[in-house]
Design a binder for these strands. Structure first.
Lengths: 154, 154
DNA sequence: TTGCTCCTCACGTCACGTGAGGTGGC
DNA sequence: TTGCTCCTCACGTCACGTGAGGTGGC
């Protein structure tokens, strides 16, 4: 079994978009800004070709933008070495021989994940605070309602 | 003490913006879309005048947009009767005599708050799911790192 | 050969940002 | 009277949406 890795099953832009819940237009725009490669690997007919790693990466970008609220410029800054990371990742998965190099790559990846987790945690705290406000208002209205016509079920 | 309510302490647009963490431009834009009154109460010089209720209302709109991710069109839809609600609220705080009317107003307010809380809960679930993904990736990288060079004190 | 998806312009839109030029309150 | 904040256009920007017109893979 000489390198019997399952075929990468390359995706076209429409399938990638469907997988992560976005549109081809958004993917091309991200590529234009340098957030995604895509421009590199083209197959016959000039069609863009993507891998499973691209699915993961793009999903991450979309979550950081949509859920965490980062701008595309902030995403570019945060994943400044993302392009490089993609290269490192490929290098890694190809089986890097140098042990120290592997440690470097993994350590950087963990640092990046920790930063993302911190931003997610901040957003979660903001949402909890907002939810608390809403529940306070609800309780106040509930008390007034009960005081007004006497308590009732619900 | 005839109606000795503390003076409403009217705010100008800049102060309102500062209080909720936004800009005058955004407030004028929301007013243009019908999300805020503001056009109604003007004082000398044509300056817009706001109340503490406006602070609460605007903060709610901004949170639903920024944290929950609703579009301004969706906000218009959700708070369709918001304009009416503001009137009802004023009516309420002025001390509505009709008990049934008060119950109606409060019941509608609670329903609205429940809808908002449901949308917040959905967003929180999405963030938890994303955080889980990130933690999974982090664990994987951690395991590879430990396997590579032996465990170490993080 | 017929659909279907893809391609590149390029203009439109949403939610504001940012001056331009001027008037009013403390 | 001097700043400071406010006002109304109005053009710019960010993150895409949406055809227009055409080529390529199954």
């Amino acid at each position: 079994m000489s390198r019997a890795v399952a075929a990468p099953a390359a995706l076209r832009i429409g399938e990638l978009a469907r997988r992560v819940g976005t549109t081809p237009r958004t993917i091309r725009y991200y590529e234009e800004l340098g957030l995604l490669p895509g421009g590199a690997a083209r197959r016959a007919g000039g069609h863009r070709s993507y891998t499973e790693d691209d699915v993961t990466h793009l999903a991450e970008l979309l979550h950081m933008r949509e859920l965490v609220g980062l701008s595309l410029e902030e995403l570019r800054g945060m994943t400044g070495a993302e392009q490089a990371r993609a290269v490192l990742r490929a290098e890694f998965e190809a089986g890097v021989p140098d042990r120290e190099r592997r440690r470097e790559i993994l350590t950087e990846a963990i640092g990046h994940l920790d930063l993302q987790l911190a931003l997610v945690a901040r957003r979660q705290a903001q949402l909890r605070s907002f939810a608390d406000d809403l529940r306070r208002h609800r309780s106040r209205a509930r008390r007034l309602l009960d005081a007004d016509g006497g308590p009732r079920a619900d």
